[in-house]
Design a binder for these strands. Structure first.
Length: 272
DNA sequence: CTTATTCCCTGATTGC
DNA sequence: TGCAATCAGGGAATAA
């Protein structure tokens, strides 16, 4: 489940390894019919080689390879996608959905068990991410605007944190963790969250994402970084997937409910 | 416009 | 132990 900290870790890993490299070959498995968006996988594999990678950036959970001639190669890992740098050919793997050779002999290997991952080759990637909300770790994520947005919505605050148009990059793990840190019941309607609580949630989101980034992300199931190594933050979560285990603050068993169609973990005593 | 639900996909987990 | 049902979840599509 790569969210902002995981995608950012991959970006930082890959940047020095691929910057300045040219793509010499591309292969997409015919068993991944939905991987390439907006064009056929054949066209994608034909058009990508020859491009030079000038940088690697990120927007929300989207990883973006900035190419020459104004093109962008955009990757979304969704649930189980992994994008790894390999000094040699990608190893044999039944879930390898695509691979890309570079001009220094290295490869980028895209592995995705559940085939939810997506890629685009575009010349105006704003079209792909149109409507994404602010970047939570940038100054554009403002307390007042965030609190105002919550005030205008009646959906559960947890569902709003998962809405990428509200803010970009938060998924199920960090939504639960931020709500715990702010002491807010995830089921509470956005417009019932007080201004001070909304401000606290705003700060908690930033803090939780920063901490997870420092731990190179959370590896609960499938996530690995750009070199194939696990993160460490799964060892430090306070509520996510801790159903029935005691709250670290008050000892009350952590509860699991479904909010916005997603499993949600919270402390019924610390979060009201 | 909003919110809620379904779908995609397959390995891991749970229940009998 | 075996096998079917359920779970996991990001985001698009659909329904209301």
């Amino acid at each position: 489940m790569p969210e902002l900290p995981e995608v950012e870790t991959i970006r930082r890993d890959l940047l020095p390894l691929v910057k300045g490299r040219s793509i010499t070959g591309a292969w997409v498995s015919e068993d991944a019919p939905r991987l390439v968006q907006l064009m056929s996988r054949e066209e994608f594999a034909r058009l990508l080689p020859g491009h030079r990678i000038e940088g690697v950036s990120r927007r929300g959970k989207y990883l973006v390879f900035d190419l020459d001639r104004g093109m962008q190669w955009v990757v979304h890992l969704r649930m189980t996608g992994r994008l790894r740098h390999s000094a040699a050919e990608c190893e044999e793997d039944p879930y390898l959905r695509a691979k890309f050779s570079l001009d220094d002999g290295a490869w980028l290997c895209f592995n995705d068990v559940r085939k939810f991952g997506m890629m685009w080759l575009v010349d105006d990637w704003a079209l792909v991410h149109a409507g994404l909300g602010p970047e939570p770790l940038e100054a554009e994520f403002e307390t007042a605007a965030f609190a105002g947005l919550l005030k205008r919505r009646s959906a559960p605050v947890k569902a709003l944190l998962l809405d990428q148009t509200v803010l970009a990059g938060v998924g199920n793990i960090y939504a639960d963790e931020a709500l715990f840190a702010a002491g807010i019941d995830p089921r509470k309607a956005g417009n019932k969250v007080s201004r001070p609580k909304a401000a606290r949630l705003h700060d908690a989101i930033i803090e939780v994402l920063h901490e997870a980034l420092g731990d190179r992300g959370s590896s609960f199931r499938d996530y690995v970084d750009g070199q194939g190594n696990e993160g460490r933050h799964q060892l430090k979560v306070k509520v996510y997937q801790r159903t029935d285990q005691p709250c670290y603050v008050c000892g009350t068993p952590i509860r699991r409910v479904v909010v916005g169609g997603r499993s949600t973990h919270f402390c019924p005593k610390c979060q009201r």
